[in-house]
């Protein structure tokens, strides 16, 4: 495994090297991040992050605000390209393919990495068209295929029963939780390999949150899920592996149960027990 090589790295800036004790899913590595650093202008936001995300498992990224977990997530589908003055070093690879290689096709990469955002962001179109959007931009015109995909995706996002009679209504009329599940349906309609979720429940009430968590449980295995969350109970509930980040560094990355019961690094312990953060 890649961790063996990573563990030998010397400590920098008073931070110990990352502690790894990852549970392996048996399906290999979906995304590999090596020595990844990122700067916004002159400010460094990520320091030599290295981690392998196990295929088919749910990986949670936790840490205090500003620790770089969202930045790291948004690097996985190159969403950070939109920001001016960004500079990166290191390598992120999906199944061995470097996504920051000069010849990499950003659009193809994003199609392999579905994304769900912090705030539900359905498009101002009908529910049907929202879910069909990834297919439409692919240029697919086969009506039957689109219909089937939309239904499958909505069922996959546990929304089908609620919206099947009003597929042609504006998606903005749905409730917040429904909108977020619609966004998940939209993300899985493009049949990605990885689902990136950037604090998907932070704008939702507890019931809607519970539904989304349930849904993530169902999606486990079908997709590799990477979720950024502020809610440590949520991370403990839904994830197989958890990565704890602090000040742009990956402090500890390991099996969730171990992370939340007896973490190997003191700083993780402090954060999880609520001593800071």
């Amino acid at each position: 495994m890649a961790e063996a090589a990573l563990k030998d790295r010397p400590a920098t800036d008073g931070f110990d090297p990352t502690s790894y004790h990852v549970r392996e899913g048996g399906r290999g590595t979906a995304v590999e991040i090596r020595d990844f650093s990122l700067w916004y202008g002159t400010k460094q936001a990520l320091f030599d992050v290295g981690m392998s995300i196990e295929a088919g498992l749910v990986t949670a990224l936790i840490g205090p605000s500003g620790c770089g977990k969202s930045t790291l997530l948004r690097c996985l589908n190159r969403m950070n390209d939109l920001i001016d003055g960004i500079r990166i070093e290191g390598r992120i690879a999906i199944e061995g393919q470097d996504i920051y290689a000069p010849a990499a096709d950003v659009i193809a990469i994003r199609k392999r990495m579905g994304m769900v955002f912090q705030k539900p962001n359905p498009f101002p179109m009908s529910i049907f068209e929202n879910v069909a959007y990834p297919l439409r931009v692919d240029g697919i015109r086969d009506k039957v295929l689109i219909q089937e995909t939309v239904e499958r995706s909505l069922r996959g996002a546990a929304l089908w029963e609620e919206v099947k009679d009003r597929l042609n209504e504006n998606a903005l009329g749905l409730s917040g939780g429904q909108q977020q599940r619609l966004c998940i349906a939209r993300a899985i309609a493009g049949s990605p390999e990885v689902l990136l979720m950037d604090e998907p429940c932070s704008a939702l009430d507890p019931i809607a949150t519970a539904k989304i968590e349930e849904l993530m449980d169902e999606l486990r295995g079908q997709f590799t899920i990477v979720i950024v969350t502020h809610n440590m109970q949520q991370a403990a509930r839904v994830s197989d592996n958890t990565a704890f980040m602090y000040l742009g560094r990956l402090i500890e990355y390991g099996e969730t149960e171990v992370m939340f019961t007896k973490p190997k690094v003191a700083r993780t312990q402090d954060y999880i027990t609520g001593r800071f953060g």
Binding site: N77, L82, I107, R110, M113, G114, N121, P122, Y133, A187
Partner: peptide
């Protein structure tokens, strides 16, 4: 809103 553009780009739209 930026979230609209990001939502579309994340779907693999150019």
């Amino acid at each position: 809103p930026r979230s609209m553009r990001e939502g579309s780009l994340a779907c693999g739209a150019s």
